[in-house]
Computed example of a mutant assay.
Amino acid sequence: MRPVTAGGEKSMELVRWKSEFNLGLDGIDEQHQTLLDLINEVWRLIIAKADPQAVMKVLEELEHYTREHFRDEEAFMRAVGYKGVEAHVREHEAFVTRIEREKRGAQAAGQLSLDLLRFLENWLIDHIQGSDRAYAEYVQKRSSGSLLSRFFRRFR
C-alpha cells in the first residue's frame, strides 16, 4: 500500500523509507513500510488542511494496522522462541496507549497534534532500529529467513 494524494502524486513526506530500516525479514519490512506510508498520509492530509474527519479516518486506519502488525510481530517472536518478546510486547502496549490518548485529545480538540506525528515517526524508526533489529538478528542467526516466509504464509 503506497498512499498518494488526491491528484495521484506523492507530496511531501514526513519520513522516507531508507534501506537501513530493512531488517531482512520481508513480511515485517513490508509492514513497517506500510506504517510509514500511513504516517505520511496523515501528514499530507494535515498539510493539505483536509477535513478533520478525513485525518481521523487515516489515523484510525494507522491505529488498526499498527495493532495487526504488533499482533503478527509478537506471534512471530513467540514462534521463533525469542526471549525478549515480553519486553517487546510492553513497548507495543505503551505505544498503543499513547495513540489512544492522542486520538481522544485530537477528537476533543478537533485537530491532530503535530507532536503526535513526530512521536509516530521517531518511535517507529527508533523501535525498528532498536528492538526490532534485535529480534531480526536473533532470527537470522537461527535460520536462513525461510522461517519468516513460512510464518507469514499462514496469514495469507
Results as ranks from 00 to 15, higher is better:
L59V: 03
Q107F: 10
L147C: 03
Y65W: 03
G84F: 09
F152N: 05
V80Y: 10
H88D: 13
R90W: 06
G8K: 01
R104L: 14
G81H: 13
P52Y: 02
S131M: 13
V89P: 00
S11E: 02
I47C: 13
M1I: 07
L14C: 09
L148Y: 04
K57H: 11
A134P: 04
V55C: 01
K49L: 12
L59Y: 01
R67F: 06
V55H: 00
T34A: 12
Q107I: 13
F95I: 07
W43C: 06
Q31K: 09
F152S: 01
S149M: 11
D115C: 02
D26M: 04
G110N: 03
E13Q: 15
A94K: 11
E74S: 07
H64L: 11
R67A: 11
E100F: 10
E100S: 15
S146H: 07
E13G: 09
M12T: 10
L59W: 02
R142N: 14
E100Q: 14
G7R: 10
E102I: 02
A50S: 14
R150G: 08
I128G: 00
H127T: 07
G81N: 11
S11G: 13
L38R: 01
Q111H: 11
A134S: 11
W43Y: 15
R156H: 13
Y82D: 07
D126E: 08
L25T: 02
D29S: 06
R98A: 11
G145R: 08
M12K: 15
R153D: 12
V55L: 03
S144F: 10
D37G: 15
I39P: 00
L112T: 06
M12N: 14
H88Y: 09
G24E: 08
G145M: 07
R101S: 14
E121P: 04
H32D: 08
L14D: 01
L116Q: 06
E20V: 12
K57V: 02
W123P: 02
Q53W: 08
S143I: 10
E102A: 08
Y65A: 01
Y135W: 13
H32T: 07
R142M: 15
P52E: 01
D26C: 01
H88N: 06
L25M: 14
E68M: 07
V42Q: 02
S146D: 03
R153A: 14
F95N: 04
S143C: 11
S143T: 15
A75S: 15
I39W: 00
E30I: 00
D126T: 10
S19D: 15
I47W: 14
E63V: 06
E74M: 07
S113K: 02
H127P: 00
F151P: 03
V139G: 02
T34K: 11
Q129V: 09
K49N: 09
G105F: 00
N40M: 03
L116P: 06
N122R: 14
K83M: 11
Y138W: 14
L114Q: 08
R16A: 15
K103G: 05
L148E: 00
S11C: 02
I46A: 10
H69K: 12
I46G: 14
E137R: 12
F151I: 11
R118C: 08
R133V: 04
R90Y: 05
F21N: 07
Y138I: 03
A50H: 08
F119L: 05
L14T: 08
E102D: 09
